[in-house]
Write a protein that binds this DNA or RNA. Structure first.
Length: 281
DNA sequence: TCATCACCTGGAGA
DNA sequence: ATCTCCAGGTGAT
């Protein structure tokens, strides 16, 4: 059993929370906002970025968190199966745009869209002869034409992305204020943006704004809950959740999994996707 | 308040 | 090759 504080990069990156990472040799290269993170496995920060520790939530007390979410054998199995799987603390703007793009799409497609956005609107950076492009700023995307956004393959999401960028650029959405406020208030604020519903708001809150009680409920999560917890959570089969049901279900989830429910979600999600041999990055 | 349905696009599977 | 189906949802009706 390895140290609980050791981060497993492969598990962490390939758990659906982030999209712009690429493995070259034994190193992972990841775009996070305006910077490039380079991390080798076993976990070692290669680039000089001071933000890498922050990004990987180095301060999280994992023994406390893992013991908190250890509610049943299923969670216990998932935690044992994926030691070192962690949540990330991503650049909020990138996370926000990424999950707006995730709507009704697949991981492969989302990654393609975001990569094209970076290439078209971001800054070029080079590391050991490898070329990358950073994530565009809110100002840049707010001023992009719909035509240019469509050329990145965004489809119906193009107008959402531009309006979302405008909301940030104008100060209507302030991530650091959302980070400080409570879960529900932050979620309501995010949902005022077109293209952001409960699920996407929860992803942004969990993966970039420190709301660890957030538990994004999507097709997979629903499948997990009805497959393994039919007695505890009442999931209406196959149908999309209404506003009221989503909120009610989330309350039940936090009641059961506790204040770090988001971490339990990450382990269960990873486990079930791997079980179904779903591809990651 | 709830149920249906359309939606851009490009992989994956038939 | 060519086609169909659908993917980590959301908004409009």
């Amino acid at each position: 059993m390895q140290n609980k504080s050791t981060i497993n990069l492969d598990f962490t990156i390939n758990s659906g929370q982030t999209f712009l990472w690429e493995k070259i040799g034994d190193a992972w290269f990841g775009v996070n906002g305006g910077e490039l993170l380079v991390i080798a496995e076993p976990f070692r920060i290669v680039s000089s970025s001071k933000n890498a520790r922050y990004f990987f939530r180095h301060g999280d007390n994992m023994s406390k968190i893992l013991s908190s979410i250890n509610k049943d054998t299923l969670v216990r199995t998932a935690v044992e199966q994926f030691p070192g799987l962690r949540l990330m603390r991503q650049d909020p703007f990138q996370c926000y745009i990424s999950f707006i793009c995730s709507s009704n799409s697949s991981i492969r497609n989302i990654k393609n869209m975001l990569t094209r956005l970076c290439r078209k609107f971001g800054n070029k950076v080079e590391f050991e002869n490898h070329q990358f492009s950073t994530f565009p700023s809110a100002g840049t995307l707010a001023n992009a034409t719909i035509k240019d956004l469509l050329s990145c393959g965004l489809g119906f999401r193009a107008k959402y992305v531009r309006e979302a960028a405008k909301a940030v650029n104008s100060g209507k959405i302030e991530f650091e204020a959302l980070r400080k406020t409570d879960y529900r208030t932050a979620q309501d604020m995010l949902k005022t943006v077109q293209g952001i519903g409960n699920k996407i708001a929860d992803c942004i809150l969990l993966f970039s704004l420190d709301k660890l009680e957030s538990f994004p409920i999507d097709r997979w999560t629903q499948r997990i809950l009805q497959k393994y917890y039919p007695e505890i959570f009442d999931i209406t089969h196959g149908k999309s959740l209404t506003e009221k049901k989503y909120t009610h279900l989330h309350e039940k989830i936090v009641e059961y999994f506790g204040p770090y429910a988001g971490y339990s979600q990450q382990f269960l999600f990873k486990m079930e996707r791997d079980l179904n041999k779903k591809k990651w990055l």
